[in-house]
């Protein structure tokens, strides 16, 4: 196959655009992980929450024909599932990994079952209305940059905004301080009057809402229908990105972008016909790169000290 001109700027634009798109659901879900774990609750249910939210979002968009209502429903259902996780983990102090695993198991069965029940069709839903792309007025006009970030599905922008806000909240506000205190030293936090339970509930709900948004980005942003297992492991990749990013919003963003970039590069290499590398190794590349980056650069990652430990209120 003839080789393309690698100096062609469109290739690089495509790479950036594709990276952003593929990173978006990971960023949103990863941020969800950050909030939850920062407050001391492990949330490996991100995958399952995304899947249920993707389904509920599609369902509401299907019946109302209003995709943004679907997005709201996705966020709400994400928060609702997370609430269940929160009750089990915070109120009843059960093992957080068990609860998360159960939710993941449940989501696959539930969405598959409901799909058949509602549409009498296996596999995927009918096409529904999805949210329209956003164009950013001035930026859109700038050459190159405009092509890269001028027009996207709203979820791309929402995910980036969410990163900035999350970082601000976590590190620049009183609430953020409390969240981090609860995740590191719950007892000390309570001593100074912080309601550990309330903070944890809030963070887990937020985590579900963000994962719900991630789910909506799949079924109402990038696609316009629900497909069984459409999350395809993204919740777990997001979890990895969160740890990779050392439980910080910007770190998570970087990790998701790296992963998205590696995947975009892999797809582009195929498109350009770089066939001297076996295709399976191209497909593996994002995962190998992540491991190499971690081993070589990032190194030790330390979770919030009280992450995963149920809190017992002091008398």
């Amino acid at each position: 196959m003839e080789s393309n001109n690698l100096a062609d700027i469109t290739i690089y634009i495509a790479l950036v655009v594709s990276t952003l798109r593929m990173a978006t659901p990971l960023i949103l879900a990863g941020l969800g992980g950050v909030f939850s774990e920062r407050s001391g609750v492990v949330n490996i249910a991100l995958e399952g929450i995304m899947l249920i939210a993707a389904f509920m979002g599609m369902l509401v968009s299907y019946f109302t024909n209003a995709p943004w209502l679907g997005v709201l429903a996705a966020v709400a259902s994400g928060a609702a599932v997370a609430w269940l996780h929160a009750v089990i983990c915070i109120k009843y102090k059960s093992n957080q990994v068990v609860s998360g695993t159960a939710i993941n198991l449940f989501s696959v069965g539930f969405t598959g079952f409901m799909l058949r029940k509602v549409f009498e069709h296996a596999g995927q839903s009918p096409p529904v209305a999805k949210v329209a792309d956003w164009t950013i007025p001035l930026i859109e006009k700038i050459p190159v940059v405009g092509a890269m970030i001028g027009k996207h599905t709203p979820f791309v922008y929402l995910s980036l905004i969410a990163v900035v806000i999350s970082n601000f909240v976590l590190f620049k506000t009183k609430l953020g301080l409390r969240i981090r205190a609860v995740g590191e030293h719950p007892k000390a936090a309570e001593t100074v009057g912080v309601d550990v339970f309330a903070i944890r509930y809030l963070c887990v709900l937020l985590s579900g809402a963000l994962a719900g948004l991630a789910g909506a980005s799949l079924s109402l942003g990038f696609l316009s229908q629900f497909r069984e297992n459409m999350t395809g492991g993204r919740g777990f990749i997001a979890l990895a990105a969160m740890i990779f990013g050392k439980w910080t919003p910007y770190g998570t963003l970087r990790a998701c972008l790296l992963f998205g970039f590696a995947d975009a590069l892999q797809i582009l290499s195929q498109t350009l016909g770089l066939t001297f590398i076996p295709r399976d190794f191209l497909l593996m590349a994002p995962y190998i790169l992540t491991m190499a980056a971690l081993a070589g650069v990032i190194g030790r990652s330390v979770p919030p000290a009280a992450s995963g430990i149920p809190y017992e209120r002091q008398k």
Binding site: K93, N95, Q96, P303, S307, G308, I309, P310, E312
Partner: peptide, 10 residues
């Protein structure tokens, strides 16, 4: 009182 060590967190 109970406190479980979460398995995922090390």
């Amino acid at each position: 009182t109970q406190a479980s060590v979460d398995a995922g967190e090390v």
